[in-house]
Design a protein around this nucleic acid. Structure first.
Lengths: 209, 209
DNA sequence: GGGGGCTTGTGAATTCGTTCACAAGATAGG
DNA sequence: CCTATCTTGTGAACGAATTCACAAGCCCCC
């Protein structure tokens, strides 16, 4: 649908707009203006309109946007109309927290597998799933392909695990390892680097007048 | 130190560079070029040099940078030469995972308090700390000021908790709640929005050819 | 000690993202 | 049906961030 490449910042804002729209929908509102969306998201109405304009024109001049319709459109644009099959690799503290994370399920991210390399954990049942060996990933994926692998292993193991994930044929990766990972260009990688976020905060706190 | 406002993207990269520098240091290397740093970080050498140039000139032409010295400088720039006193608010799954997160301690972020509003949790000992009521925050902060509050409560409670944190006089906030929070301009807020990150991945997966 | 080979630091050029500003379309009311 | 009012959608202007390109400096070796 989008004619040119969409900026990362735009996609992030779309995600915000969607959240607000859902709130508006729950509140029973039927119509919303770019100005109202902007106020909630801490941005400007022009920004909202420009963001939406990359994907089409969804509003009515003089009136605004239909909440229900726009919500639907946002969901489709963000790829949230389908379910995504997710496996979590590394069931330490972060992995365990993610496995139980409600936000996953709510947005259609189905956790269908847990993997670890620690033999003490392999075979154990956690959250209705059996933890399996990372070595089984390729075979498992052949039988029942998964869309996304969540990497929640310690930094030193992360690149190796990612290589296994890629070799298994999984092409979507969400990493929580605090390092820079390298993947082939046909694999989509999104990293949440907590260490980086902490340091960003530390920088900001150190440099305010 | 920095003459003009530094872009967010630059600070993020500095954080990456620091990680590489530490690796190089551990590997016993004494010298590194912008080209080598760039290769690791998936960027360009010009970008590396430009990033560093905002803060001074740390290299030697023809030679590169002294690993030890540059590491030191990066630490100072990012505000990592001191310790930060951190409290975690909300000891559910995410809060608990964070409380044990090694990356915190490693970078000088000392978890000195745990808070929750659930009376079943208040008073319990977790990870060498007693969970306290959020209502005690203001008094506690007066006695022993903290630098950073980590928000790990459910979305509907987050803004209320943030208001309490602000009222208590804490001016650094790291939030993991998947909503847009509003704080006064003298408070520094950094949000890690997992829902947004998931949707970003979902978007990327849906829109590749 | 002079030349060759590297690598930095930085203005200039370019690309990318945001903001401005306004015509176009929609509604409502007289 | 015409006017007043509102809000969208979008080129154009602006500003920010990245990339280019090269002079300046440093080291090594002959």
């Amino acid at each position: 649908m989008p004619l040119k490449r969409i900026a990362d910042s735009t996609v992030r804002r779309l995600s915000l707009y969607l959240r607000f729209l859902e709130e508006f929908e729950n509140a029973g509102l039927t119509t919303v203006s770019s100005e109202e969306l902007a106020a909630r998201g801490g941005t400007t109405s022009a920004q909202v309109r420009k963001d939406l304009s990359f994907f089409g024109s969804f509003g009515k001049r003089g009136l605004g946007y239909q909440v229900g319709e726009l919500t639907q459109r946002m969901r489709r644009i963000l790829g949230l109309e389908r379910d995504w099959r997710v496996v979590i690799i590394g069931v330490g503290k972060i992995g365990a927290a993610l496995a139980q994370y409600e936000g996953f399920r709510q947005r259609g991210f189905r956790v269908v597998g847990l993997y670890d390399s620690d033999s003490a954990k392999i075979g154990r049942e956690m959250y209705d799933l059996y933890v399996r060996s990372v070595d089984a990933l390729a075979d498992d994926n052949r039988e029942q392909p998964v869309d996304i692998a969540v990497i929640a292993v310690p930094a030193p193991a992360a690149q190796r695990v990612v290589d296994q994930v890629v070799a298994a044929g999984i092409t979507g990766i969400m990493s929580f390892a605090p390092i820079q990972l390298h993947v082939p260009s046909d694999v989509t990688l999104n990293t949440v680097n907590m260490a980086m976020e902490l340091e960003r905060l530390s920088y900001a706190l150190s440099n305010r007048e």
